[in-house]
Design a protein around this nucleic acid. Structure first.
Lengths: 224, 224
DNA sequence: AACTTTATGTGAAATGCTTCACAAATCGAG
DNA sequence: CTCGATTTGTGAAGCATTTCACATAAAGTT
């Protein structure tokens, strides 16, 4: 009915809803490749193991994208979600810490696919500085602030050891970067206006360990 | 007061509570290293950016571990949480798909540190089969079911391309593996009795993209 | 030993998120 | 053009999680 005039959502949208938008986007990409024109909330829900009501409610926060009796137009909805998530553009990303995880992420296809373009690499190890990863030369972390700022980096992925991570925050923040994805298992202290998300790959294994150990209730949908 | 007789918890514990246990465990490890004897819910909350009430409520699901007026005993609480999470033991883990992410995870220290021991590697690429990663020889995926079962693997980490992942599920399940951590961006279909968790590293970047694009409300604590 | 301070453990209130259920809208068939 | 089938969009109900607030208890102090 009444479309919120701006897609940039005045109401508070839950974190789970945003995560599910990622899932819808993924599902729609799949459907698009299989030449579907429309999709119902029921189908979409099935693909991502959610409920139809959940799908409709999530989408309704951002507008009325469907047609009653028919469903949602695959192409158009995919594009709309891309706009909402802000992945209808390229983001300039720097990766700091070229260890195991770091080097893996340089070649991680899902990043590139959603518009996250890794354009700078940093490390503090002389043996790594100057080396070439997928066409990008590793810079010395000494010049972090200046190089981030000169390269107009908008987001940073932190894959350093936990002891190092906190020291880098000031330089990162001063460079003008507004968002940090932190892989170090530590709770970084950052200023209020910086967006920070943490990724801890051991945590999901720990959840599985808990489930196996305690015979947790059979199944539930993923957390989002 | 009344300690639930079994730590394996009869009540339903939320997913978020489990994730936060991982955080408490991490914080306690830190405090232990710094020779703290006791810690209050307030301190613990501060370290992981949660609220004291949250900490106390979470812990109270599993028993009464603290002393009024004093706080919680660091060592003992750490050990208790390890038992609850089932990480007070070694888990035998296999990793399938020796690409970028896969090879990085072989050396990922956080896994080893929490008792997740990667003891088998698999791939379908002849160039990788037989090669040595951190002392483990990569096996052919052809013999997946048998080798998983012979090695008494309890958990599997899936880092194959999405197109391959679903095909492997039958072999994995038939081998007796009960838990899967899936990195492929696809919703795997697995039998009811199998525990499945998904890890999608692009999703948190997408969240940051959303936040930057929509000037999402300044900050909130991590989802768990 | 009494008093003050600190901090847990937990019902109850408040808040937040998901599911329900149905009116409204569109489609397709006849 | 009407009717039956389908499916959205959304208030309201139902659940779940978080926060509040306080009784209770231990520790330290004088």
């Amino acid at each position: 009915m009444s479309t919120p005039s701006k897609i940039g959502s005045p109401k508070k949208i839950s974190e789970s809803t945003i995560h599910r938008l990622s899932l819808y986007y993924r599902a729609l990409s799949l459907l698009e490749k299989e030449n579907y024109d429309t999709v119902s909330s029921k189908q979409l829900a099935k693909i991502e193991r959610l409920t139809p009501a959940q799908v409709r409610k999530d989408l309704s926060f951002f507008g009325s994208f469907g047609t009653r009796g028919l469903g949602y137009p695959v192409n158009e909805l995919k594009q709309k979600i891309a706009t909402i998530l802000g992945i209808d553009r390229q983001w300039r990303v720097a990766l700091i810490g070229i260890g195991n995880i770091g080097s893996a992420l340089v070649s991680y296809k899902e990043f590139a696919r959603q518009g996250f373009q890794i354009v700078k690499l940093f490390d503090n190890d002389q043996r790594k500085i100057g080396s070439n990863h997928k066409g990008i030369i590793v810079s010395d972390i000494k010049n972090l602030e200046q190089e981030l700022s000169e390269a107009s980096i908008e987001m940073v992925v932190l894959t350093t050891p936990p002891t190092v991570a906190q020291y880098l925050v000031d330089d990162i923040v001063n460079s003008g970067v507004k968002a940090i994805l932190n892989f170090a298992p530590i709770n970084l202290k950052v200023p209020e206006h910086i967006y920070l998300r943490n990724e801890n790959m051991a945590m999901e294994l720990e959840y599985l360990s808990f489930a196996l150990t305690n015979n947790a209730p059979p199944r539930r949908q993923p957390s989002y």
